[in-house]
Computed example of a mutant assay.
Amino acid sequence: MICPEELTILISATAASIAQGKSLLELNLLSCFFVQLGDSLATIAVQREVIEECCCPPKDSDSENSSSSNRIII
């Protein structure tokens, strides 16, 4: 797995490369596209986590004692 610092450098270098030769309008459009893409991916990840927590509890003795009122379903 890539370390956080290397990931930041990779993202910055990718952004600089994509930006070359693009107009301000094109850059704004690309920015909006990638922001929405990131937000959509985050929404999917959170929903999967919620479903996993609610529907697939861990198989240990503590899970039998947990209350279903503490679960959130979206």
Rank of each mutant, 00 (worst) to 15 (best):
T14N: 13
A45I: 04
R71K: 09
S40G: 09
L10A: 14
T8A: 07
D62C: 11
A45T: 14
I11G: 12
T14C: 13
D60F: 00
A13R: 13
S23H: 01
S23Y: 00
I73F: 12
L41K: 07
C3M: 15
M1H: 12
P57S: 01
I73V: 06
E52V: 10
I18F: 03
A45F: 04
S66W: 11
R48E: 03
P4I: 00
D62P: 07
T43I: 13
D39M: 10
L7C: 10
L29Y: 06
K59I: 10
L25A: 12
E64L: 13
G38E: 02
I72E: 00
L29S: 12
L29V: 14
Q47R: 08
P4S: 03
I72F: 09
I44Q: 00
I72P: 00
A42Q: 08
L25D: 08
F34Q: 06
I51W: 13
I74T: 11
L24H: 04
D60H: 00
S68T: 11
L7S: 13
L37H: 08
I74M: 08
L7A: 09
A45S: 14
C54R: 05
L30A: 06
D60W: 00
L37V: 02
V46G: 10
A13S: 15
I51S: 04
L29I: 14
L7Y: 15
N70D: 12
I73T: 02
L29M: 08
L24V: 10
N28R: 02
A19Y: 00
